[in-house]
Design a protein around this nucleic acid. Structure first.
Lengths: 231, 231
DNA sequence: TAATTATATTTGTGATCACATTCTAAAGAT
DNA sequence: ATCTTTAGAATGTGATCACAAATATAATTA
């Protein structure tokens, strides 16, 4: 196993070790810094974050339930490998899930929420301008999350995040081989539609944002990237 | 904490304790035999299944990631309470998720799969006739699962099961107070549509099955049930 | 009697250890 | 050289223990 380097990440006082481990690993997978096929060892992670196997195991169980990790028959744990078919399923699911989340959120959206989204979008533009892909990615997710969590009874955010998590490792590969991830910005359209409380238009903007953004990879481009990464 | 009784459940040789614990608890929640609001203790569960805290904790972490359990601020763990709003969200999500799963499965469905579904449906009718609600519920799930897993690249089954899991405790309440859960059988329509490989018709049948089945509870009926259960 | 404090118990948490399985690689045989 | 065998190391797993926080129970006070 490669010596994995995990960003220290902020740890609020009183947060249990297993949760901290979960957040750190999750973050690492989300931005694609743990490569597919790479196998993780419990002791290795525990050592890397100066704790013990017990809480790390709990974190790994959660991650595997979230689809971020796969337990092999050997009981070895790894980041699932990406395939063209799986990528297609993930994009299609992401579109359906997030359109639904957006529609359900619209009735609860306040001007305050929309303003917040506009701020995030602006920050993301800044990150893109600096070619800071990882930050742009995180801000893009925060943009979407802000919208969906406007619904107080929302229950599908964990599922949306699960899809993001499964897409993460591929983004890591893409970011390595493509100079800059092209964030097709349908965020302005989404914001405009939100101000009019037009649920259909919001859903359409979200759909386009996904399909023209990360979903816009051609089959051949995906195959090429996966081949480059030795998948 | 009440002395919880977990059905022993079959345990294949070599299955780790944490996974066995996960399956047993999951099963119990799925059929609604653990009541919402009831708080679970790690040691209590470990004792009930004659093991130790460590693997039980791993099982609980997974269940909480699957939405089946909620960790409170006290770090206490309980089955989330149901509300009318949450119930509405769950049904709407279930409909969207399963329609999508069905559509993506249709191209991969073979006659073999359809025959299997017909068998399951027949068994479910038998269970309903015997007023065996728990078995009918499980067979209903198997019917749906058989369809969705026909898609080899399917990735949303865990999410569908998560919704089922979150609906479970409410079904437990409903089964206690309603003589018989009325399974509106749109399964025949689904099977007929599948034989014609008509994806739209299949999705429509699944949608009706959900909305007229468990989703058919009126708001007042849900409130009534929750009040009866002291929620 | 009601409220408050003090004590005891329960509970979540994380580190450690022992055991069995799996993986790695060195040694041997074909 | 290639395959097989074998010894060593690494790894997942589950039980146990100690500690701190939370809860419940008993004792005390107003």
């Amino acid at each position: 196993m490669r010596n994995l380097s995990l960003e220290p990440l902020d740890r609020p006082e009183g947060m249990p070790t297993h949760e901290y481990a979960h957040r750190r690993l999750r973050q690492a997978i989300m931005v694609g810094s743990i490569r597919p096929g790479e196998s993780l060892t419990i002791r290795g992670i525990a050592e890397a974050m100066e704790s013990s196997p017990t809480p790390v195991r709990e974190a790994l169980r959660r991650l595997s339930s979230e689809g971020a990790l796969k337990v092999l028959d050997n009981r070895r744990i790894m980041v699932p490998k990406m395939t063209v078919e799986r990528f297609g399923e993930l994009i299609a699911l992401r579109s359906v899930l997030e359109q639904h989340a957006a529609r359900r959120a619209v009735p609860h959206v306040t001007e305050r929420v929309i303003d917040r989204m506009a701020e995030i979008d602006q920050a993301q533009d800044g990150a893109i301008a600096r070619a800071d892909n990882a930050t742009a990615l995180l801000l893009n997710q925060e943009f979407h999350r802000t919208l969906y969590t406007a619904n107080p009874d929302q229950i599908l955010m964990p599922m949306v995040e699960s899809v993001w998590l499964q897409l993460g490792p591929f983004l890591g590969i893409a970011m390595e081989h493509v100079a800059q991830l092209y964030f097709v910005d349908r965020h302005q359209e989404a914001i405009a539609a939100l101000r009019k409380r037009d649920a259909d238009a919001v859903a359409a903007a979200i759909d386009l944002d996904i399909r023209e953004g990360i979903g816009g990879f051609e089959r051949s481009a995906i195959e090429h990237l996966l081949r480059l990464a030795g998948q």
